[in-house]
Simulated assay, not measured.
Amino acid sequence: MTVADVIRAAMALTPEERSRVADVLYDADAPDQAEVDAAWAAVAARRAEELESGEVTGLTREEADAYLDARRAARGA
């Protein structure tokens, strides 16, 4: 079956059926939320360790705002 065959068959479906097919196809490529959550938890833990060990230092709100303003200005935004 070719892509064109699949599209032709899908177009023969009712709007509700096409919507269901679209949902299934969209979800087929979605990452596993548990994996995404675990990856973000690992990043957060690593960054917390870096702060606690003194490997990196945090910025004050004012420093962060100034840094972001300078980046924005450098991009011409």
Rank of each mutant, 00 (worst) to 15 (best):
V21N: 02
E17V: 00
P31D: 05
R72W: 05
D65E: 15
V43G: 04
A66H: 01
G54A: 09
E50K: 08
T57K: 12
S19E: 11
D37T: 09
D5M: 05
P31Q: 08
E63T: 14
A48G: 05
E62M: 06
E62Y: 09
T57N: 07
E52L: 13
W40C: 04
L68Y: 06
I7L: 09
A38V: 10
M1F: 09
D65S: 13
V3D: 08
G76P: 01
E35W: 08
G58F: 02
D27M: 03
E49T: 14
A64S: 13
E63V: 11
R75N: 05
W40S: 05
A70H: 10
A34E: 12
L25K: 00
A70Q: 09
D32W: 00
A77V: 05
R71M: 13
W40L: 12
A45H: 04
V24Y: 01
M11H: 15
V36D: 00
A4E: 15
D27W: 01
A30N: 04
G76T: 08
R71E: 12
R61S: 12
A77W: 06
A28D: 02
A77I: 10
L51F: 12
R47V: 14
P31H: 03
V36W: 00
V43T: 09
A66C: 10
A48D: 09
W40G: 01
T60Y: 03
M11L: 15
A39H: 09
S53D: 09
E55V: 12
E52W: 03
L68P: 00
D37P: 01
M11N: 14
S19L: 03
D5K: 02
D37W: 03
R71L: 14
I7A: 04
A22P: 03
